[in-house]
Write a protein that binds this DNA or RNA. Structure first.
Length: 728
DNA sequence: TACCTCCACGTTTTT
DNA sequence: CGTGGAGGTA
């Protein structure tokens, strides 16, 4: 059977495009992964290129695995040798192969975000930077966003004192990382970009090899990733990019959907192919999504359609409280489950994680099994981090982060003062803590403890020299004292289990990267395998692992809308559809904020195949106080005929004006302002700000102020004596 | 060193 | 409301 069979005309056109760069505008559920993988298979099957000439780039490891699986299913070839991976994974591969040219030690370690933040904190402390005035998180953002624009500290523009200070932190951070032989995520990309930029030999080698570069989720690329792709493509290779500007929801972390337009221009793409036939959802769902996203001004333009029928209308449920909202969802889930829909084929989505608590509580009480995405992942667990730190020290003793993490864990009598001495000695001589500890062993008890620690690590390293990877992990975990430590802890059993699981993870990890091309200065090419321990440590940093166990079980899926991207379910509940929550209040005033929120809603809607619930609550407990929320503006952006209002809860005037049945006012305390008669929860109209709802009040008499949540203007405090508020 | 209390904070997140 | 970090005390 031909791999091209069953493709629609647009998919076929994209797959069989002649040797030229292309931009595929692929709507939700339009078969973009299929197009991407079939394109690769077709190029190889027709003999146009060999597997070695393909590079496919994704954002997540999951997507990369999925792609490899699908290619293997289509072609009887070995997919090793094909470079399919994440931006970071591929950059890591290149940097490992050319560590010397990249100015890195062979055993360089990768910092995850938490590791990076720890280094920044350490550096800031050493520089005496006030962390009240300069929050380390902000310094981290500053550094990462600079790197994502391809900027080294020397190239960053710092117009004011504040950014000048952050810039010095950036400089010191870079210096520290170089001393330790560690790189953060952004650094992997920037290093690789710089390496290929200045080393012609390497650049030509990779350009000669990767004739076809395919990119998934192109709308999520940042500027640096775009320039990296451009550099790798050079003048002769082609980029096949698949993306959807309407699903660009990661601008806050540097994603730049404008890269799609740049690609068109820079690569002379004459015709953008649009995949608009949707194979996922029924018509009403798509009509709703199309109608909603039409409210965005900056779009490339696209309209999803299906050959299937309209299906059910979208169900709208308006609850009085968040608790009642949860109860309704529980009832519906239970009923659908009884009707035969698997729990795992239903998703409960929310804008922010804080919303999950009430929902979880209701599900738990009802005995419905559920799974929450997000939170700690396997390689991020404390005990795993500790074990990895021991492993990292045996591979690269200069890794100060790893040193500090375990030098006194389990406790071995190395207190703060001896560590401070050590840090001073290291900083003074510009060496690592390990080197400082080796160089001048302090006398006395503390000195002996440090010496013992050094000997412990040295012994580990020697013992592991010729062991296979799983045994290395086993040995290090056993001799580190971690197991013994957790045995004395009350909650230690799970941690010990995880540590044992780490050995299994090591056993399951067989250097997936295979041999790596090396180019010496003379230009000769040879191959070398990567040392398994370092490969495993890189893997641990680059792929933090599954969120939680129990993925096999049939359970309702709870997650943020962001993490739902790319997934699909028979039934989807979108909860908390209220102004201030979704769209989120912080986004309303942001540049491009409202449009990004709308794209987020678009993503949420298009997750559903058959049934979609949109719910909101009038009253919600948030940050310890009750908030009164207006229904989300998104309800107004979906045609009424697509919506089916489940209930006719009595709402006050403002809501009634939007199509709900008018009725009695919500019971809420009178604002204590004497005779004013305003109520919390009451709908009001302001001459300038328009319609809103009173959500809070304070003061009395002439000082009385009310807080109003306006549809368009957001939250505002108004003095009742001055503001010309009118009851709606 | 370990535990406890207090305080501040609270969008989205992969690598 | 609930959590996580920091700082203080036993």
């Amino acid at each position: 059977m031909s791999i091209l069979e069953g493709l629609n005309p647009q998919q076929l056109e994209a797959v069989t495009l002649p040797h030229q760069s292309a931009l595929i505008l692929a709507g939700a559920g339009s078969g973009k992964t299929r197009v991407l993988t079939t394109r690769i298979a077709w190029l190889i099957q027709t003999g146009q290129i060999g597997p070695l000439s393909v590079m496919a780039v994704t954002f997540t490891n999951k997507a990369a695995r999925e792609m490899l699986t699908r290619i293997s299913a289509m072609l009887p070839i070995n997919t090793r040798g094909m470079w399919v991976g994440t931006f970071h994974g591929l950059c890591n591969r290149i940097l490992r192969a050319h560590y010397r040219d990249a100015g890195l030690p062979q055993t360089f370690q990768i910092l995850d975000s938490a590791d990076q933040l720890a280094v920044i904190k350490r550096v800031m402390k050493a520089m005496n930077v006030d962390d009240e005035k300069y929050p380390p998180r902000q310094a981290q953002n500053f550094i990462n966003s600079a790197k994502e624009q391809g900027l080294r500290a020397a190239q960053v523009d710092a117009p004011d004192d504040f950014s000048r200070r952050l810039l010095t932190v950036y400089e010191a951070f870079e210096a520290q990382c170089n001393r330790e032989g560690v790189v953060d995520f952004a650094e992997l990309l920037l290093r690789c970009y710089e390496l290929l930029g200045r080393n012609e030999l390497l650049r030509d080698h990779y350009r000669g090899r990767f004739r076809h570069i395919l990119v998934d989720e192109f709308q999520d690329t940042n500027r640096l990733q775009y320039h990296w792709l451009k550099l790798l493509a050079g003048p002769n290779n082609t980029i096949f990019a698949v993306g959807d500007d309407d699903q660009s929801i990661y601008a806050f972390r540097g994603a730049h959907a404008g890269n799609m337009l740049d690609l068109e221009r820079d690569f002379g793409i004459e015709k953008v192919i649009k995949l608009e036939q949707n194979y996922r959802s029924h018509g009403n769902i798509l009509d709703a999504a199309n109608a909603l996203i039409r409210h965005n001004r900056t779009r490339l333009g696209k309209n999803l359609w299906t050959s299937e029928g309209g299906g059910e209308p979208l169900r709208v449920y308006q609850a009085m409280t968040d608790i009642e909202e949860a109860a309704y969802i529980v009832d519906e889930v239970r009923q659908l489950h009884n009707e035969g829909v698997a729990l795992s084929d239903m998703a409960l989505l929310y804008r922010s994680n804080a919303q999950s608590r009430v929902l979880e509580h209701a599900l738990f009480s009802a005995g419905i099994s559920y799974r929450v995405y997000g939170g700690l992942r396997f390689f991020e667990r404390q005990e795993i981090k500790h074990a990895l730190a021991y492993l990292r020290l045996t591979a690269n003793p200069d890794d100060d982060g790893a040193f500090l993490r375990v030098v006194n864990f389990p406790t071995r009598g190395i207190g703060n003062r001896s560590l401070e001495q050590l840090q001073e000695a290291a900083a003074g001589r510009g060496i690592s803590l390990w080197q400082a500890a080796c160089a001048n062993t302090p006398s006395g008890k503390a000195g002996a403890s440090i010496t013992a620690f050094i000997q412990l690590i040295e012994a580990m390293r020697k013992a592991c020299e010729n062991l296979p990877l799983p045994e290395i992990v086993d040995h290090v975990v056993a001799t580190s004292g971690l197991i013994a430590h957790y045995q004395t802890e009350k909650e230690g059993a799970d941690r010990i289990e995880n540590l044992n699981e780490l050995t299994n993870a090591a056993a399951a990890f067989v250097g997936q990267d295979g041999p790596i091309t090396l180019i010496s200065a003379e230009g000769e090419i040879r191959s070398e395998g990567l040392d398994p321990l370092n490969a495993f440590l890189a893997h641990a940093a680059l792929e933090a692992g599954e969120h939680q166990a129990g993925e096999g079980a049939d359970a309702l899926q709870l997650m943020t809308v962001h993490s739902a991207k790319g997934l699909e379910f028979h039934t989807v509940f979108i909860s908390g559809l209220e102004e201030g929550l979704f769209p989120h209040e912080n986004s309303v005033s942001e540049q491009d904020g409202p449009e990004e929120e709308r794209r987020l809603m678009y993503v949420a809607l298009t997750r559903a195949r058959r049934r979609l619930y949109l719910t909101h609550a009038q009253t919600r407990m948030l940050h310890g106080q009750t908030r009164y929320n207006v229904p989300s503006r998104f309800f107004d952006e979906i045609p009424d005929e697509l919506l089916k209002r489940i209930n006719t809860t009595k709402f006050s005037g403002f809501v009634a004006a939007k199509g709900y049945e008018a009725g009695s006012k919500a019971r809420a305390p009178m604002v204590e302002t004497g005779a004013s008669g305003w109520r919390i929860g009451q709908s009001v109209v302001h001459p300038k700000f328009g319609a809103g709802v009173i959500v809070n009040a304070e003061g009395r008499g002439s000082d009385a102020r009310v807080q109003v949540n306006f549809r368009d203007a957001g939250l505002k405090w108004l003095a009742l004596d001055y503001a010309k508020l009118v009851a709606a």
